[in-house]
Design a protein around this nucleic acid. Sequence first.
DNA 1: TTTTTAGTTCCATTATTCGGAACTTAGTTT
DNA 2: AAACTAAGTTCCGAATAATGGAACTAAAAA
Lengths: 271, 271
Amino acid sequence: MASSDGTVGKALEVLDLVASFHRPVRFSDLLERSDHPKATLYRLVQTLTNQGMLSHDPDTGNYSLGIRLVRLAHAAWHTGSLAPRARPHLDALAQAAGETVHLAQLDNAQVLYVDKRYGRDAVEMYSQAGKVGPAFCTGVGKAMLAWLPESQLQQLLPQQSFHRFTPSTLTSEADLRTELLAIRDRGFAYDREEHEPGIICVAVPILGPTDRVLGAISVTGSTGRTDLKTLEALLPKLQNTAKRIAEEATTWTFPVPHESLEQREEVKCPV
Amino acid sequence: MASSDGTVGKALEVLDLVASFHRPVRFSDLLERSDHPKATLYRLVQTLTNQGMLSHDPDTGNYSLGIRLVRLAHAAWHTGSLAPRARPHLDALAQAAGETVHLAQLDNAQVLYVDKRYGRDAVEMYSQAGKVGPAFCTGVGKAMLAWLPESQLQQLLPQQSFHRFTPSTLTSEADLRTELLAIRDRGFAYDREEHEPGIICVAVPILGPTDRVLGAISVTGSTGRTDLKTLEALLPKLQNTAKRIAEEATTWTFPVPHESLEQREEVKCPV
DNA sequence: TTTTTAGTTCCATTATTCGGAACTTAGTTT
DNA sequence: AAACTAAGTTCCGAATAATGGAACTAAAAA
C-alpha cells in the first residue's frame, strides 16, 4: 500500500508535511522534504492556500496550516468522534477514579486522543485533544489493536516504529503480537511504563455491535502514587464506562439539524 | 470567483458538504445536495475515506468527518492560529475585565473563534474554538472587515448573508460599509445586539506590521448586567492586549521542533 | 416474484495535472 | 555597481488522471 490516491492524496500529503514541521515553513523547506518537483509542489501549495487549508503570511513568506482546518475539525469532533457523546461518562469515570482518564481513537496507525480528564479539573484540554501517540506502546493503542481483524493488523503493524521509549517497550512485531493475544484474552491492556518511564495505565477497548473497534479508554497513574494492582481495581468502572459509550455511539440517532444556515453555503476562496 | 480549483477543490468541497449536515450522512444524502454525477461524487468520497478525511461506518453506511482532521487541526491551532501565543494575554484580559473574551480570525468570509475565556475558566478546544459565526454582525467580524484592503472587501462582502438576526442587525452592504468607515475612524467596533438580542460587545482588531489583519478580540456582556459605556471603559486594556498579541505573532520565532518523530512519517491508509 | 432504491464498477473520452526549463525578484558577495 | 546566488514564480507540450453515462449488483419494498 505504498502509494496515495491521485491529486487529492498528494495534496493531503502536503498538509501532513506542513504539519510535520510544527512551525511555519517556507516553500523551500517543503521542497527539500518533498519528492515532488518544484513546479508540482508549488501548484499544490497554491491550491491548498487558495482553499484555506494552508495560510500564507505575505510578510514573511511562511506557510502554516490554515484555519479552515480548525473549522472542519470542530465539526469532525462533534459528529465524527466519540468525544461529545462519551463526555458525561468520561466525567463520571474521572470523578469516580480520581485518576487521569483518556479517550482515544485510531487515526490510521496512530492513536489519537480525542478527550482527556484530570481527576477533577478539566484543564489543559486545548493541548491534549488532537494529540497523537504511538499505538504499539500505549494502553489505549494496544487495547484497540488487540481487537482489530487480522487484515487491518497486517496494515497497521508494519507502520509501527517499535522505537524503544523505555526499557519495557515492546520493540518487535512478534512481541507485540503475543501481547495482543494476551490482552484479548484477559479483556484489557496494561501499559507497564512502555511509553514513558513512571507512567502506567489500564485500558479497555470500546467495541461496537460486531466487536468493531470504536475507540478505547484508559486510567493512568504514575508509579510514584499508585501501581497496576490499584488501577486494576478500577476495571469494573472502566468496562462499564466503555460499554455505555459503545451503546450511546450505536444507539444514538442524531437530532435533526437545527440548520443555523444563515451562514453556511458554499463559500468560495478569497485571493 | 465562482469556481474551485481542480480536483482538490472539489474534494474539499465535499468535506464542507459533509460538515454542513451536522450529522453522519449516507451517500445518497450527499448525492442529493451535490452537483456532481453519481460516479464522480462516489470516487471523491472514496478517496477522502481512504485518506482518513472521512470515516465510513460499515454497519450503518454512514459517513462522518474523519479523525485525521482532528489531528491536523491540532497542529493548525498550534502553528496556524493566534491562539497559543495569545493565550496568556487573553487570560490576563479576562481576569482584568471580568467579562467573556473572544479571540477570532477570519476564515474566508466568516468569523472563526479560535479561543474564548469566561471571566475565569477556560473552555474546551473543539466544542468552542472552531465555531464559526457571521462577520457582518459581530464585533470581531466588523473589527476585522474594517481594516481589510478594498480588494478583499469586494470579495467578502458579497458573501455575507445580511440576515436580520435582530432589529439592529445591519442588513445591507451599504449600511455595513458606512459602519466600517466609522469603526476604522474610531479605532474599534461595537456590537449593539446585532447578532443576538441582549448581547453587546466592544472589539478591536489585531493588526500586523503593515496593518494586515491578523485577528480580533472582544469583550462581551449582556444588556442585563452591563452596557456599552461600561465595556468601553475596558478599551485601553483591550487595545493593549491586541498590541501585545500582534507583537508576539510577528516577533516570535518558533522554537526548534523537538522532533518527536518516532511516529510521524508518511503513514498510509487502511482499507 | 417483481419492482424500486441505494451503492458500486466499467471504460472510452476529455480535461487536468505534470515537470523540465526558463524567467523574475530579492538578497549577497566581490 | 556589476556579478553571483538563492528563492519563488510562470510556461507549455506531453503524459496522466479525472470524468460521467451507462450497466451492474445488492438489498429492501411492493
